[in-house]
């Protein structure tokens, strides 16, 4: 099996813009944002890809496009009205429910991300209203379906306006990117990892952290998730490639799930394993799905003895353990320490 494929940003730009050819290259790009980091001319390759893709038919969509179909279907239906609430915070769970239902063989409880996030936010004294919106439209936007994205955006903006929130919290890296960069709605968008450093947990463990492309290179959020871990006593062991050089998990926006991208996933898991940590933390539900998919493969190339969990899930589990161990006396013991 060929595990290497050639993609050249330059030839795809040439082919599309100069020669006017229809090329495969614009679809094989993972949009992970690694080329723009290395480009001395600072070419905005991602915007090029996105514009070039608009209105064209994607080459290869994973899971037979079930998530795209779902987004398209919901974009054609009226949205619900927000429930009455005077919380200024809104929490958007994203598509964790659908991930859990359509990827049931990945054996990951995606819904736990939502419950964990809410638990942690509660601990921090934030009681958000749950935003029952449509999909943020990230995937369809990057798959070239601009019209579907626009419909979703319109419905979501209406919902947000009616709910009256001023801060939107999300634990998904892709939602975070889309709401901050493609919605321009004038309210604050926050990723859960930016809030979690004040939890005050005392965890004694080694983990390694995978920078998802949407949170890292697209949004520049490298330190917040690390701080959320270290401030709670966790030691973060860095992989060989981290921060802006981090390797991609191989699949973004549910495209290009094939042998070549699987090689990327294996490479990344190997790097994670080499750090010696037993837990790999991610902040993106897609990365979580893809690493766990590799782990649970039937005839796996290699068995990985490593937990892949979302940041919020990890911290919430530790919080539960703490409460069990120390009982409700947790707060007073913290006082003594101070």
């Amino acid at each position: 099996m060929r595990r290497v494929s050639k993609t050249s940003p330059r030839s795809s730009i040439y082919n599309a813009n100069v020669y006017g050819l229809d090329t495969k290259d614009i679809w094989t790009c993972l949009t992970c944002g690694l080329c723009p980091i290395g480009c001395p001319q600072q070419v905005d390759f991602l915007s090029f890809i996105r514009e070039e893709r608009a209105g064209k038919e994607p080459l290869e969509v994973a899971h037979l496009g079930v998530f795209t179909e779902f987004a398209e279907l919901s974009s054609k239906l009226d949205g619900v009205k927000p429930e009455k609430s005077d919380s200024k915070y809104g929490y958007f769970p994203g598509c964790v429910d659908q991930l859990g239902l359509f990827l049931h063989d990945v054996k990951t409880d995606f819904g736990e991300i939502t419950t964990s996030s809410l638990k942690l936010l509660d601990k921090l004294g934030i009681k958000p209203q749950i935003m029952n919106m449509k999909c943020c439209g990230h995937d369809v936007l990057w798959q070239g379906k601009k019209d579907v994205f626009d419909r979703l955006k319109k419905l979501n903006l209406k919902y947000i306006k009616e709910s009256g929130i001023d801060t939107l919290i999300t634990s998904c890296a892709e939602c975070y990117r889309t709401f901050s960069k493609d919605y321009d709605m004038g309210i604050k968008v926050v990723h859960t990892s930016e809030l979690l450093d004040k939890l005050g947990l005392k965890i004694n463990a080694d983990v390694t952290y995978h920078d998802s492309c949407r949170l890292g290179r697209h949004m520049g959020l490298y330190d917040a998730p690390r701080k959320a871990l270290t401030a709670n006593g966790v030691t973060v062991k860095e992989m060989e490639h981290s921060k802006e050089n981090a390797l991609c998990c191989g699949v973004s926006n549910f495209m290009n799930c094939n042998e070549q991208t699987k090689a990327l996933r294996i490479a990344r898991m190997n790097e994670a394993e080499a750090t010696g940590a037993k837990t790999l933390i991610t902040t993106c539900s897609k990365c979580l799905a893809h690493f766990n998919c590799l782990k649970n493969e039937k005839d796996a190339v290699k068995k990985y003895d490593m937990d892949v969990v979302d940041l919020t899930v990890y911290l919430a589990r530790k919080l539960d353990e703490n409460v069990k161990k120390e009982g409700p006396a947790l707060d007073s013991s913290k006082m003594e320490n101070i």
Binding site: H63, V66, E69, F70, L73, K76, F102
Partner: peptide, 11 residues
């Protein structure tokens, strides 16, 4: 029958 067939039909 894939879920995507069903969603497509409804869509």
């Amino acid at each position: 029958v894939e879920p995507s067939f069903i969603l497509k039909a409804l869509k």
